[in-house]
Nucleic acid binder design. Structure first.
Lengths: 344, 344
DNA sequence: CTGAAAGCGCTAACAG
DNA sequence: CTGTTAGCGCTTTCAG
């Protein structure tokens, strides 16, 4: 626990000015190789590490883009990190993941961070905002909203947005089940008052039913428990159990893969087999779904495309293109083994 | 995209000095309620958010403790986040998770962050260091190493350490399998050259075998693939497949639960049933293990205790107690459904 | 209670 | 090529 080393200490020790040290550690061309080497040796010797706060305060612009993530437990988001990292590096940017917990506003975090780190841009992963354009008014760098419940923002042409149509995709999943002959189709959806992803996906379920002339039955709707973390295996398990105890159905649509895995367990404990006795469809397309037994049929979000587009939109915006775009991709139904056709 | 608002702008607009604004936003007692309210209203009106770099640079000490995590994909680590957050808040500290990617040294990240944010202390989750005391020499705040391969550091009484004995626990798992009558026991372990957790757990496996007089058979050892991310379901699946194709065994020990889930799939695809045909034991005790079918027998790390102790040690150190301690907990064998006894 | 002023550690002109 | 110096935006004495 030695004392805080500063650039001054290094300069003094080397018998040079602080700017020389600064040049050395920042690979500035305007310094002779000899001095640079000498300084760097001292830097290394004392394990000197500059203070980023001072650095960030001083510099007028950085080269950093932040990924602001709400919901660390979201395994689908996690699977996108790597793609973002790689792409952003390739574009010559530094990259930073900033986790924001449930009780902090993403907008505030973003603005704080942007000031603190002189960000070049930010990408939001999850985290609903009432009105992004308003909440992010003070965010004076370009940003794109990735993977948010897009239709919440429907008439919102003033932000960059990359998303899927949650309602339409849900509808697709449920229609698939209907095609396979199912009519009693249960759903595990988000909290009862979820107006974001959960709400969207539930409405898609309702639409599919309506279009097929199947009556909507509230009994078949399992809302995630309030006292268990949302979108977890545990919650899926709990809700599926209740559903199974309450009523009959031949198919179950889970609005997230990780939830479906919990449902598998409840189904198994009820003495039933997934697919043979009860068809299951998930949503997201996480890797784990390949490894469940049986493997999980699901709505697979085009995450690579979404990552790429998010970065592209951001790059455009950074390079001065100030017409925001909304990209709504369609997801694909990934047919695996968890759905069986039944006789009408 | 308005211009960067600073404390000066607010001060000017309010017709007060900057220090007054500072007092208002920092809940400083030395300000009249009236002025404070007035200032705060303006702050809100313009959505002014202070610049943390400036703030951090100026303040001599913060109240922040950082959790430095190597390996974001580590689901076991993730399950500890919440506990750390809660406990640290309870102790009156701010809390910060800092992810470090595979190609950055945790030690450097830690020192940088400590300077930048004036940290009060840091807790490391994963991330091996050659010699922590040396690498962290410049880290001038207390720290504790949590969940690291403890015996790498065996004679290392100069750092705070909270861990389990990976070798001993592995040994326990394998002995349990032996007790159940298994003699052909395969293992899925880390990369071939893993000297940390993977290496430790492999050595425990060897010891159990040796003590039971069972010959060590390299054929039964599945090293994780180099070209697939380590400790993933996918890697577990790949390695289990190879193992299954190569040789016979009645039990499989996976050195991480998430890997075991991949093995389940490979076993199923080989036309076998987990438990009935092939017993499986995992390691870690993640939640998901409760929901696999059959549920996974595993070595469960006492994560709550580990979290609590880590925080306790750190608090002690922060409060001036400078004798480091090494706490090595024993994990418990969680008997679930994936192991069956067999006839000798 | 309030404002002026002195830095926190660093980078980037600017002058040598 | 190198050193001196002026802030970056904020907190915190120190006078008033």
């Amino acid at each position: 626990m030695s004392d805080q080393l500063t650039i001054k200490d290094i300069a003094k020790y080397c018998g040079v000015g602080v700017s020389t040290v600064s040049r050395a550690i920042n690979d500035d061309p305007g310094i002779s190789p000899k001095t640079k080497e000498r300084v760097l040796k001292v830097v290394k010797k004392f394990h000197y590490i500059p203070n980023n706060s001072a650095r960030n305060l001083k510099i007028q612009e950085s080269n950093t883009i932040a990924l602001i993530v709400r919901g660390l437990n979201n395994i689908f988001f996690q699977s996108m990190f790597d793609g973002f990292q790689t792409l952003l590096y390739k574009n010559g940017y530094d990259f930073l993941i900033h986790l924001v917990d449930e009780n902090t506003a993403v907008s505030r975090s973003a603005i704080e961070l942007a000031k603190e780190k002189r960000l070049k841009g930010v990408i939001f992963l999850g985290g609903q905002m009432e009105d992004p354009a308003v909440e992010l008014d003070q965010l004076d760098v370009p940003y794109v909203l990735c993977t948010v419940a897009h239709s919440m923002y429907t008439p919102m042409p003033n932000v960059n947005l990359v998303a899927i149509d949650d309602a339409a995709e849900s509808c697709k999943a449920v229609k698939y089940l209907i095609e396979k002959g199912h009519r009693r189709i249960a759903i595990i959806t988000g909290h009862k008052d979820d107006r974001a992803v959960g709400g969207q996906r539930l409405s898609g379920y309702k639409r599919a039913l309506a279009e097929a002339g199947i009556a909507y039955d509230e009994d078949l709707v399992g809302y995630m428990e309030e006292d268990i973390p949302e979108f977890t295996t545990e919650n899926g398990y709990a809700v599926a159990r209740k559903l199974l105890a309450r009523t009959d159905f031949t198919a179950l649509f889970c609005i997230s893969d990780i939830t479906a895995i919990g449902a598998y367990k409840a189904i198994s404990e009820a003495g039933l087999n997934v697919a043979d006795d009860l068809s299951v469809v998930g949503f997201d397309g996480i890797d784990l779904g390949r490894f469940t037994i049986p493997s999980l049929t699901t709505i697979s979000q085009p995450k690579d495309k979404m990552v790429k587009s998010s970065v592209d939109l951001l790059m455009k915006a950074i390079n001065g293109d100030d017409t925001p775009r909304q990209l709504v991709y369609s997801a694909s139904l990934l047919e695996r083994e968890s759905v069986k056709a039944i006789e009408r």
